[in-house]
Amino acid sequence: MAGPERLTKTVPGNEGIKQKRETMFRITLRKFMRNKLAVAGAVVIFIVVLAAIFAPWLAPYDPGHQYLLDKLAKPGGKYPLGTDMLGRDTLSRLLYGARVSLLVGFVSVAGIIFIGTIIGAIAGYFGGIIDALLMRFVDVVISVPSLFLLITLVTIFQPSLTTLIIVFALFSWPGTARIIRGEFLSLRSREFVLAARTMGVRSSKIIFSHILPNVMGPIIVTATLQMGYVILAESALSYFGLGVQPPTPSWGNMLQDAQNITIMISAWWYPLFPGLMILLTVLSFNFVGDGLRDAFDPKSIE
């Protein structure tokens, strides 16, 4: 038998292997960093997350305490962002509100991704009748007017954080399922998947160890975009009094108190700050989602 050295030299297979190594992660990161809006979004999200985590230490006041002598205080001075009509400190309520928004967002999106990925993966990988049935089910769930349904369900059950999260998770996954199904559908006939099949690798292993890691990009992108959607929806429902219930502060129910036109004019800071937080956070998630989508796209080279 020929020695390894000889073989390596006689067969010219080793030419031009790139000496400079760059991992997939670094390439993606580099592409992401070039998108300024996405980077700005990431920074905002990072700050909001930190604020939510450290709310108890950062908040200057108890968010529920009513300083009855300081109702509708102007921003600045004792209260950096003013107070509401019950004399509660806006900054403290915003900080605690971030906790609620992010909590609802993260847990709902985890549920959405979990259900959507499982259904999408099974439909896309196995195809045929399984796919047809699951996709009809997706069509049914999609055609349910979700906002009305949300309102109905929240009215039937007690509006609470849990109800909100369950409703979001159970009715918002179809979009994710469709995306994941599409990815699986195209990847299942890729040659590396066929190769695994010809070697006798089991379907479950192919799904989890071959296809899923190649779908992480789309999953992260959808998750990010869904975060924006859920936070917005949570705010909207809370604004209508169907979401997070007072006295728990949420950005949405803080706006609810400010519906009054006189308050809007005389105490502009009251609706402004929660509104700004919703806008900024939702926008940031969308920018980051778009940035990630481009960064993961293998076609947008370098």
């Binding site: 390596t8 006689t10 010219p12 297979g13 080793n14 030419e15 292997i17």
Partner: peptide, 26 residues
């Protein structure tokens, strides 16, 4: 070694190889 690649490249990812080298891995 059999397909003419250096075993020290085994920790690399496919995108670090040329088409011919990838075919050797296949």
């Amino acid at each position: 070694t059999l397909v003419g690649l250096d075993p020290s490249y085994k920790n690399r990812y496919p995108h670090e190889f040329s088409g011919g080298q990838r075919q050797r891995i296949g």
